[in-house]
């Protein structure tokens, strides 16, 4: 009986482990520094996580469909640079839709390669990481991009504005999370994403168009990247052309931390948001404790491995792997 309850606690821990860890973190940090749980600080954490978080929302779709996307970082640099450049050339009203169109084209191209041509997503998006980076450099001529008139544009509203006292990036992030959460959890498309990632063959045998579903996931991901790029551009009104470099792996870390399996078929938008916030809170909390920013890297490392390990340990019912 004792073992039974122990097992139960174990399985609850494993299932909701990430939430438990999240709660523990917040409690610990709050004890260490009461400022941690203040509204201002919460806002600051979410705002600084917003760009990463928005990209993570899109990547969640891709990962649940059983694929990877390593190209989101360089794609974000691309959309940031493009929208900044076009802002001065054709004005923000046209620049924003033009940038979205271009970014969605990139996503559609990846979706075509992975979905319809059934190519390995890791390699395709690795190639696209490099190719889009090149595209961005070519586009910008290797220079940083700045808006000429930084004071006189309303374009800064996406990154710097507030509405109802809440910073706009937070509103966009949480709003998008709510919408995409509903799409994933409640719409036929979302259901198909889970089916394709859970068992692609069975999904095909159920009449689901697997290629189209995967394609749409990548398009969705690129749309999120475009939004992230928009916020990034609007926040600083100028940017280096490597602004998104390395973000792809942080994004993936957040998604995995949220409990999505790289095998596909599991994960939720809510959990991804938690994953993003955990990364944000670790960063923030360690800084408040007076620790250097790089300590968060090490802490994140440990947390990612522990989180995934406990998750699969619970599934196989054994802590250690049976590999001989």
């Amino acid at each position: 009986m004792a073992t039974l309850t122990k097992q139960k606690i174990g399985s609850v821990l494993a299932k909701q482990g990430i939430l438990v860890a999240f709660a523990l973190f917040i409690i610990a940090f709050t004890f260490a520094n009461p400022k941690f749980l203040s509204v201002d600080n919460l806002f600051s954490v979410i705002r600084s996580s917003a760009i990463l978080g928005i990209m993570a929302l899109g990547v969640t779709f891709v990962v649940i469909s059983g694929n990877l996307d390593l190209s989101v970082g360089s794609m974000m640099s691309f959309s940031t640079i493009v929208v900044l450049d076009l802002h001065d050339k054709i004005g923000p009203f046209l620049a924003i839709p033009a940038m979205f169109a271009m970014t969605l084209c990139l996503g559609a191209f990846i979706g075509f390669l992975v979905g319809y041509l059934k190519l390995n997503s890791l390699i395709v998006t690795l190639g696209m990481l490099s190719a889009i980076h090149g595209l961005t450099l070519t586009y910008s001529g290797g220079k940083n991009m700045d808006i000429a008139d930084k004071e006189g544009t309303w374009f800064s509203v996406f990154g710097q504005g507030t509405a109802l006292g809440i910073p706009v990036p937070i509103l966009i992030f949480l709003g998008l999370a709510a919408v995409l959460g509903l799409v994933l959890a409640r719409t036929p498309f979302g259901r198909k994403v889970y089916a394709v990632g859970g068992n692609g063959t069975a999904a095909t045998f159920s009449g689901i168009r697997r290629a189209r579903t995967v394609f749409l996931c990548y398009v969705m991901s690129s749309a999120c990247v475009a939004v992230a790029g928009l916020i990034q551009a609007s926040r600083s009104l100028g940017s280096q052309n490597t602004v998104g470099q390395g973000l792809e792996l942080e994004v993936l870390a957040a998604v995995i931390l949220g409990g999505a399996s790289l095998m596909g078929g599991s994960g939720t938008i809510f959990k991804t948001v938690i994953g993003v916030l955990i990364l944000g809170f670790i960063q923030n909390g360690l800084l408040l404790l007076g620790l250097q920013f790089y300590v968060q890297f090490v802490v994140t490392w440990v947390i990612i491995i522990l989180a995934v390990w406990l998750d699969i340990a619970a599934k196989r019912g054994k802590l250690w792997s049976p590999i001989a």
Partner: peptide
Amino acid sequence: GQGLVLGMNCRDNMTLPQVDDL
């Protein structure tokens, strides 16, 4: 391998082919 998405619940598996119509 072909009939079921084992990680999905009973209801979702059953309605999978017609999820677009419901």
